[in-house]
Simulated scan of single mutants.
Amino acid sequence: MSEPDFIVPPPGLVPGAPEHGRPDSAEGTVRAERALPAFRPPPGIRPPSALPIASPSSVAPSASPSTSSSAIAPPAPAAPASSATGPWRLRSADGIEFPVLDRVVAGRDPKPPAWLQRATVVTVPDHTRSMSKTHALLEARDGRLVVTDLDSTNGVRIWPEGAEPTDLEPGVPAEVPLDAVVLLGDVAFLVDRAPADSV
């Protein structure tokens, strides 16, 4: 009697075929169907890239918002080279646009607290009233854009493509990567750099 040319493993040693209806890890990471509700990038703007952001949980909370650059998480990896090297800029699909040269307090009818009296005030029309009167502080710090929720009702979220939106903890600054979407309440802004000659 001849021996078979192969060895049959004992039962249970070889893993079974994947179960049907159970997504594998590759399928679990696909988010093609997920889109920012009612957000269209302004004309001529490329969609957000998949740049990571610092998680607000990695930022040490403080008793009051700080202007020290050490109070924010480490910078995100460098973005791809871009021809725009001017100031940070936020643009909405509705044509709202404003630069962030230093410190900006944004909201429906901003009334900055005493420690922000020298900040630029930007009033954002919001007919849905999802944005608080004094909603968020945006700061240009050492070549980075940092956003802080000023205890708004509906919060601030940072949403890079390919990742879940991150809800910020009020009073805790977080870095915003280039080409991410920032949501102030339900008002969405695409973050980019203006051309250098636009200042």
Score class of each variant (00 low, 15 high):
Ser198Val: 12
Thr128Phe: 04
Ser130Pro: 00
Arg129Lys: 10
Pro177Met: 05
Val147His: 02
Pro61His: 10
His135Lys: 10
Glu161Pro: 00
Ser66Ala: 08
Val14Phe: 14
Pro112Lys: 04
Asp186Val: 00
Val121Pro: 03
Val181Arg: 01
Pro113Phe: 00
Ala71Ser: 14
Gly185Ala: 04
Phe6Pro: 04
Glu161Gly: 05
Pro41Val: 13
Val30Lys: 14
Pro87Glu: 11
Pro125Asp: 05
Asp186Arg: 07
Leu168Val: 10
Val172Met: 05
Leu168Ile: 03
Ala140Trp: 01
Ala17Leu: 12
Thr166Lys: 09
Gly162Ala: 03
Arg141Ile: 12
Ser132Met: 14
Lys111Val: 15
Ala63Gly: 11
Gly95Asp: 04
Arg108Ile: 03
Pro56Asn: 08
Val100Pro: 00
Pro48Lys: 02
Gly107Ser: 02
Ile53Asp: 10
Pro77Leu: 07
Val199Ala: 15
Leu51Ser: 13
Asp142Arg: 14
Glu164Val: 10
Pro15Lys: 09
Leu36Tyr: 05
Glu169Asn: 12
Pro61Trp: 03
Leu138Gly: 07
Thr128Lys: 14
Thr120Ala: 12
Trp115Glu: 13
Trp88Met: 09
Ala54Asn: 04
Ser64Tyr: 06
Arg108Glu: 06
Val172Lys: 06
Asp186Ile: 02
Met131Arg: 05
Ala180Asn: 09
Val105Asp: 00
Ser130Gln: 02
Ala119Gly: 05
Arg193Met: 10
Pro18Tyr: 04
Ala71Tyr: 07
